[in-house]
Design a protein around this nucleic acid. Structure first.
Lengths: 135, 135
DNA sequence: ATTCATTGCGTTATGCTATAACGTGTGGCA
DNA sequence: TGCCACACGTTATAGCATAACGCAATGAAT
């Protein structure tokens, strides 16, 4: 994957997500960037579109929120060598734990192939309580 | 699972979903029930809450839409004997195909157990093109 | 160098999704 | 009878996302 350099807005949005270290909404990002000249949601959404395309950011469908890819320094995101990303999201503390499972990927692929279904994007999200919050 | 009888509003909403045979939004449901006296979103959302609790309806997170459980007549929904529900959603025709996979369930359970994560609700959604739409 | 297409950007307005907060009515039950 | 739980109805508001317009910068092709 040849990642084009990020534009200024994309960098700002990405930076906010990296600092957050947990999923935050587009409007939260907007609020945190008002001092940097952001005024409208579209400025955020457009940056998020590019960042998710590039694999640097994931969208959590069950939260309507976004998070920086946890593996952006590993080979997986540099080369997109892995398949689907899964998240365990704690409803207590808001932390989202990103992981991969090849067997799950495999099962989904098998299911799709058997039905000639062509997957474009797969969402796997477990909501629940993390060890700390369940205690 | 002892399912309490549905109230009038719950029945109306459920009926709309069964007839739709594909995911539809809460506001679409509202529009289709205006002739039956529905006026406000909350009437729909309250019914949907109960129906999803009862396992008769699933929410598709990636669509912000709802669909009647495809297996409501089988043992699976009467007794909730299965685990997680997965969907293959066609971005072309809008059809959503519900399925289960024990191996995926198993992998997710193993992952959670290893981390003392207590799952409450799991979402698995594959978006893509169905065989007919990909042709 | 001029033309053209592409891309990012900023702004205003709007639409879609979901819930808060309040009050009413009804049925079960001590 | 008094209480409680629950479904319901209404108004208002919060939260998430995109349409449509125009401008500016870039870079490739002629």
């Amino acid at each position: 994957m040849i990642a084009p350099a990020l534009t200024k807005n994309q960098s700002l949005v990405f930076d906010v997500l990296v600092r957050a270290e947990q999923p935050i909404s587009a409007y939260t990002i907007l609020d945190r960037l008002r001092d940097h000249g952001f005024r409208a949601p579209l400025q955020v959404y457009r940056a998020l579109d590019k960042l998710t395309e590039a694999g640097l950011v994931h969208r959590l469908e069950s939260l309507n929120a976004f998070v920086a890819c946890a593996h952006r320094n590993a080979s997986c995101c540099g080369g997109h060598s892995h398949g689907t990303v899964a998240f365990a999201i704690c409803t207590g503390c808001g932390q989202a734990d990103e992981f991969h499972d090849h067997e799950i990927d495999h099962r989904l692929t098998v299911w799709a192939k058997a039905r000639n279904f062509r997957p474009e994007k797969t969402t796997i999200e477990i909501r629940g309580l993390c060890a700390r919050c369940a205690a």
